[in-house]
Simulated assay, not measured.
Amino acid sequence: MKEDVFALADDAFNGRETGTKGEVQAAAYIAKRFKQIGLQPKGVAGAFTQTFTFKPSANPHEQAGFTEKNEDGTLTGTNVLGYIDNKAKNTVIIGAHYDHLGMGGDGSLYREGEAIHNGADDNASGVAVMMKLASEILDNQETAMKTNYLFIAFSGEEMGLLGSNYFVKNPTIDTKAVSYMINMDMVGKLNEENTIAVHGVGTSPIFKQTLFANNDGALNIAEHASGIGPSDHTSFYLADIPVLHFFTGQHEDYHKPSDDAEKLNYEGMKKIANYILNVIEDLDDAGKLNFRKTKNESEEVPMFKVALGVVPDYLYNGQGMRIDGVSEDKPAQKAGLKKGDIVVKLGDLETGDMMNYMKALATFEEGQSTIVTVLRDGEKMEAKVTF
């Protein structure tokens, strides 16, 4: 896995932006690795690849449009697909996007000009774990013979889940026979608490018991029911396919040139790979899983007129909202708040969890001041914040 991350996050690929030479080179690397592992090609016309042409939207709130023509202003992305054909009735899809931000652009949080964004955690980490799973499943075929497995490295994720969206609309297998889909996006920074977020737990009745029954590595599982989220599992959920999405959390290198291969937790990736493999093997004889619709958690998020200027710790399971990072020259920094502080109150409003924190924040307007109550190293303290 470490070799794969270092290869994909190398400067030679110039950040793997969809539609660039670096993306094509990265796709060729993944196809070569799929062949080395022993996967069969499952793209178009007997190849490992499936290409899609699209016209990027100038409006960030609008989806890019697919097109059949190579007109001016169009780009071509490349999905890479490898298959284990066990002549089974059902298929499991295991995916991870490999594209990233290239030299920066709209999605970058780097403010000092162009630079190569190598995307080691986002998402060379997910691709490396996916290839590890492919290798392990092939090596343990006696325990995994009742299901076919399709491995997909998606492109176009950073531009709006384009590769996964295209595959679902133009599948190279019968998607009616897909039992479930597993997605891995940013799984390279397992923290000291061994916390991994798992999204989509509510999309099939069997998932919750399976996830907790196979947790041999003592992982701290932050479960989320919804099948909707900002990664490729969403495309499959919207096609009524049960999904599980694995994520180790945002961090200070997210969407910056500093997301480099030497910073990842490879022992943590090994734990995650083993955990997902246990889940896959447990579900191997479960047949086609029942699908269940879930609430779209993003639709419940209130509208904000102000920002505190922090990165929430989305993996935190305790009471309150734990701060994972503080932005420069924003209200939180000016008030003396620090990474690790747990916000338990904004003004008179309790912030017992992330949703309560967001609802409380939505009540304030620019120019207002309030007292924020935090726990720091177990001690309660107050600070005045001006929005």
Rank of each mutant, 00 (worst) to 15 (best):
M1R: 07
M1A: 12
D4G: 11
G19C: 05
Y29L: 14
A31C: 02
Q36M: 11
A45S: 14
T49R: 11
F54V: 09
K55I: 15
S57Q: 10
A58Y: 04
Q63Y: 12
A64M: 05
T67Q: 04
E71D: 11
T74G: 04
G77V: 02
L81W: 07
Y83H: 08
A88E: 04
K89Y: 03
I94P: 01
G104N: 08
S108I: 15
Y110W: 11
A120K: 12
A124V: 08
G126N: 06
M130V: 11
L133R: 12
A134C: 02
S135V: 05
N140S: 13
Q141D: 02
M145H: 14
K146I: 00
A153G: 15
A153R: 12
E157M: 10
G160E: 12
G160L: 13
K169Q: 15
P171R: 15
T175A: 06
A177W: 09
N183V: 08
M184Q: 14
G188S: 12
K189D: 08
N194E: 05
V198L: 02
H199G: 12
G200F: 09
V201H: 05
S204T: 03
Q209N: 10
G217F: 14
I221A: 07
A222M: 09
E223I: 11
H224C: 10
G227L: 11
G229N: 09
P242D: 10
H245A: 09
F247I: 02
H251N: 13
P257C: 13
P257R: 08
S258G: 11
S258Q: 12
L264C: 09
N265G: 04
Y266S: 10
G268L: 10
K270E: 15
N274K: 13
L277F: 15
L283F: 12
D285G: 08
T294Y: 08
K295E: 05
E299A: 13
V301Y: 03
F304N: 03
K305L: 07
A307M: 05
V310P: 03
Y316V: 03
D324C: 09
G325E: 04
V326C: 02
E328S: 10
A332M: 09
G336A: 06
K338S: 11
K339W: 01
G347Y: 00
D348E: 15
L349T: 14
E350I: 00
T351P: 04
D353Y: 14
A362R: 06
T363S: 12
I371E: 08
L375K: 13
E379C: 03
E382A: 12
V385T: 05
